[in-house]
Nucleic acid binder design. Structure first.
Lengths: 223, 223
DNA sequence: TTATCATTCAATATAATTATTGAATATCGC
DNA sequence: GCGATATTCAATAATTATATTGAATGATAA
């Protein structure tokens, strides 16, 4: 049966791509994969979900062309298939931001409450880093930092922030970043630091976008 | 129950956007809406699907921020919510093109068989139109043409093409377009005209992209 | 008002998706 | 080989999506 027209075949394929992105957990997995390749186990740990479940979602996304997998010893490392997948995530965000009242509400009530200042652009950051005007702060967990981070960044995971305030300068501005837009870590960090009198702003989007832009990185991903 | 974190709320919303695009019929509806506002009845006719079914899909997409609706007399006209929705469709296409073997196969076996020449860019078209070097051919159905088309375009729907070959010049190049990338109409037209000795190429993408780029249009949409 | 038409709603049956569980497979170190 | 570990597979139950049908609503025109 079913000699579907080529147009129908293509639409079915495009729909399969959308479907692969159409689950909150899968988006959380993709956010992790945007940082770099990760094993199934690590992804399960990060998302707080059973391994078998994560494995199934990863395979679903692989069939739809969102992820790729390579085995390395006992581990299978999944990655984003493409920079285009990052674009897809960004586009989903943008459509939701513009047209869904619920998103606007959360952004206003949660994110803007923590940081209502305009974020620092990548261009501005690079310029001011060169002149040593700012200190760059990565608030992701240590292991994520180790796998790749912006050059010269200082790693103070959100959990450790309170105890290690001494590591941060009070005379220079701090620029904080984490996994990307709407990553809560940098927002929480900015809010926490600002009430303690630090001069701090967020970087517009995070590590994945920096790397996708072809800018240099340090850590395991640099090789 | 469920005091979900703001991050989870956002991911759920982003997933809802993806889900709204994750159905072949809904993509076909969105392709129609990309041409301009359409009533439920027209969309049902165009897609060959029951009115109630189309209505449900439209409402699904409206809840997810992909479409908007306005009532005008007896009719309800749906539109794309945003130019960002066009970007979403383009991104889905791009991810599928790059990473799904089935898409590559269809493009090769069907589309490239009909037109393996590089398409004409918008910039090139504008330049050559000004010098009257080319004739612009819209192969969409008459009613779609009436609702909006590129300035100066000649409308010869694919069905009528065979009988009205006399309307086309043999000394100038013809540039054909229709609803967008992978719209079969322009591919079929190019293939049909080329075997008859016409010099013809396709425009890269179609009417919606032209309009989204802010370029002038003629017809009902021009007002 | 009534007749008519476009759209939506509500109910239903079918199909697809998802999380969970436990077993199977693959790889490594010994 | 064996045991340990990472991943996948297979089966299941619960949930969610979908197409269909017929009735209800909203708007127009006579």
């Amino acid at each position: 049966m079913s000699s579907r027209s080529p147009k129908q075949v293509l639409f079915a394929q495009f729909a399969a791509v959308a479907k692969a992105a159409a689950h909150p957990l899968r988006l959380a997995i993709l956010e992790q994969l945007a940082q770099g390749p990760r094993s199934v186990e690590v992804l399960a740990d990060r998302t707080g979900v059973a391994v078998a479940n994560v494995s199934q979602h990863l395979q679903h996304m692989r069939r739809a062309g969102l992820t790729t997998a390579r085995r390395e010893g006992k581990y299978v490392f999944y990655s984003l298939a493409d920079e285009a997948v990052l674009d897809l995530l960004a586009t989903l965000r943008r459509v939701a931001e513009r047209n869904l009242a619920e998103v606007e509400r959360v952004v206003r009530d949660y994110f803007e409450k923590r940081d209502d200042l305009a974020p620092v652009s990548r261009a501005e950051l690079m310029r001011r880093l060169k002149d040593r005007e700012v200190v760059l702060l990565d608030v992701r967990p240590e292991d994520e930092f180790a796998l790749g981070h912006l050059p010269g960044a200082l790693n103070l995971p959100l959990a450790a922030l309170q105890k290690r305030l001494g590591a941060l300068p009070r005379d220079r501005e701090i620029v904080a970043y984490c996994r990307g837009p709407y990553c809560v870590l940098s927002y929480e960090a900015v809010a926490a630091l600002r009430v303690r009198g630090f001069k701090v702003r967020r970087l517009e989007d995070g590590y994945p976008e920096w790397r996708a832009a072809g800018l240099p990185v340090e850590g395991a991903a640099a090789s």
